[in-house]
Design a binder for these strands. Structure first.
Lengths: 223, 223
DNA sequence: TGACTCTCCTACGACCATTAGGGTTTCCTA
DNA sequence: TAGGAAACCCTAATGGTCGTAGGAGAGTCA
């Protein structure tokens, strides 16, 4: 309990730096982050920031990790649902992910694009992304197990295709209509349709229950 | 024929500036373009560039327009095919687009992402994009007309979903595996699968010809 | 109280985009 | 062929950036 107080204060400052950096990026663009401006808003001189981060890249990395953690955290509530209705859980998770991305466009750009010249996330910052991918794979496998998806839907290609759908919807919305509400966005509102499309394509081989009315109005609790 | 010679030389220089800027961006990242570095590589002093472009943003805009023109031009060869086999033409066009994007990652990032803080394309630079969208819409309508696609596949949502597929595959590949060959890229190699998925989802209502073997090995001349 | 550490500072070097204004080359015209 | 204008490229300077070096003052411990 000796230097807890100092450490506490330090962590507090680190958090404040990241928050302020996010603010700056929200106004100036992701690649427009400025150490000087960040410091200025905190009532500091720019060099003082280097007590907390060795470089601007390190700030990007910390923000990347924070974004990854948040975006994985968003999926947490739907893990329970996985055992009962994997497809429903996947749709809910997808909508939550898209909604989070539109609510945090700066972090989303950092995660889904590669907008900053010198920056590539360190393995440490990337680790949550690996977990997220494993979570998705598990969810798809659960859907296979539940007879909602053909086995091919959970193999490497299926996973890649699913993530492409996610990235595509988010990318298009961010690039073309960044400030539209999720429900109204020309692309984000198609999230349930995209999930339908995926499940329709990877429908199980022999099935007499739900194979004919898939094109219709799915996604009951979507809007 | 008065100032043709001067004008010619001037256009030549403009082209050289854009080419050099592309080189710089390829090395330093899209947002890492530097007027000074560009000038240096041309054996010029930085201020001289302002004889040709009023600002760095103007260079981005010119490159955006060039990229748009190129990416639309890539589709030109497949317009003829549209009347015979719209679906085949769409697939071929999609593969050509993805291949172009991977061959020109810098321009692709400029088109599909929004990596440069102050920059948004002017309407003039954006005009080819409008034409491209109309071309896609026409192609999808042709597929509807040919009985390869349900009408819903060519309406606003269908078009948006299709572009999301394109953007998704390209984004994921650029962000995660930028230097992989198109045929091997974890995402780009799924281009035919993605098109299949789209057509499968928007399959025409009543059809006795090709509805059962869609999941199988489509895309004959793909790899 | 003395020593140590943490935090913030000023000063600096090297880069950047952009503007102002001057000299030289190139080309057209009289 | 000579004059003149336009095009082109330059130097110099402003005000911004990231990042380093090194010093001053405050908080914390023995």
């Amino acid at each position: 309990m000796r230097e807890d107080r100092r450490q506490l204060r330090r962590n507090e400052t680190v958090r404040e730096i990241l928050d302020t950096a996010l603010e700056v990026m929200a106004e100036e663009g992701v690649a427009g982050l400025s150490m000087a401006e960040t410091a200025r808003r905190m009532g500091m001189r720019p060099p003082s920031l280097y007590q907390y981060f060795p470089s601007k890249t390190a700030i990007y990395d910390a923000l990347f990790e924070r974004g990854m953690r948040e975006t994985v955290g968003v999926l947490e509530p739907y893990r329970a649902e996985l055992s009962r209705d994997p497809r429903g859980a996947l749709l809910a998770g997808q909508q939550a992910t898209v909604a989070w991305a539109m609510a945090h466009p700066v972090l989303a750009q950092l995660l889904y694009w590669r907008p900053v010249p010198g920056f590539e996330p360190t393995p440490r910052a990337f680790e949550p992304a690996v977990r997220q991918l494993e979570l998705l794979r598990a969810a798809l496998r659960a859907a296979v197990h539940a007879g909602q998806l053909s086995p091919a839907g959970a193999d490497e290609d299926g996973v890649a295709l699913y993530t492409s759908l996610t990235a595509g919807v988010i990318s298009q919305q961010l690039a073309n209509e960044p400030s539209a509400p999720v429900q109204e966005g020309r692309f984000t509102r198609l999230t349930p349709t995209a999930v339908d499309m995926f499940f329709h394509f990877y429908a199980p081989e022999e099935s007499e229950s739900d194979d004919s009315d898939l094109r219709g109005r799915r996604t009951p609790a979507a809007d």
